[in-house]
């Protein structure tokens, strides 16, 4: 049993990473990674939604008929998103002010829906929950790294406003790497999202090659 969880964790974080391998969830990846903090916040919100919706779909998987499965999945994802949205607004308001506009967009993210279809509709509750959690963690990891790449080059800082997201104690994380005047603004504008994501995918493949792994080319079928 432990090998199975090991695979789930490894797949989610690296081998089958939602952003870097499946190329799913490109919309939040581009829109929310203008800073490492924003990427991290968006990733965590998505992770919560994914873990919860995987859990519910796995729980009810024997009652969901094939014909209505897609509406039911979307219903469950939308409910979880609204739950996160309301909770954030009420009790994590500073975070909500940063992410508020983008939390509803998680519904249109293909990654949660993809995991429901591929994993949670076939597997028991606990592995499904784990899959949602670690796919979400891998998503968070990718978004944070892309956010960091864009933030360093585009505004010259790293983890700016981390205190708004994580509490005043995290003010120490905020670092200025070079003065704002020298920052390449393009990187925090939309083209920077594509550049950083592309470079990160290339770097991951290079790393995989260096570790002697086979690379499967053109694995992505949908982008959303």
């Amino acid at each position: 049993m432990s090998t199975k969880y090991g695979t789930i964790i490894k797949d989610g974080l690296w081998e089958n990473n939602g952003v870097l391998c499946q190329l799913l969830g490109m919309c939040p990846t581009m829109a929310m990674t203008t800073s490492a903090t924003n990427g991290f916040g968006m990733g965590v919100a998505t992770m919560l939604v994914m873990a919860a919706s995987n859990f519910f779909v796995a729980l009810f998987r024997n009652y969901i008929t094939n014909e209505v499965r897609i509406p039911v999945y979307i219903l469950i994802v939308a409910a979880m998103v609204t739950l996160v949205d309301l909770t954030c607004n009420a009790w994590m308001h500073e975070l909500y002010k940063v992410l508020g506009l983008f939390i509803p967009l998680i519904v249109s993210n293909c990654l949660p829906l993809g995991r429901l279809e591929v994993f949670a509709s076939r597997e028991p509750v606990i592995p499904s929950f784990m899959d949602g959690l670690f796919m979400g963690a891998g998503f968070t990891l990718a978004l944070t790294v892309i956010g960091a790449m864009r933030e360093i080059s585009g505004s010259g800082t790293l983890f700016a406003d981390a205190n708004l997201l994580l509490g005043p104690a995290f003010k120490v994380l905020e670092t200025r790497i070079f003065p704002e005047d020298a920052a390449v603004l393009m990187m925090i504008l939309p083209p920077g999202g594509f550049l950083a994501t592309g470079l990160l995918i290339a770097a991951k493949r290079k790393l995989d090659l260096a570790m002697g792994k086979q690379i499967q080319m053109g694995g992505a079928h949908s982008v959303g």
Binding site: A183, V184, L185, M186, M187, L189, P191
Partner: peptide, 8 residues
Amino acid sequence: VGLLVSFP
């Protein structure tokens, strides 16, 4: 264009 967008 990259320069123009980045360093107006």
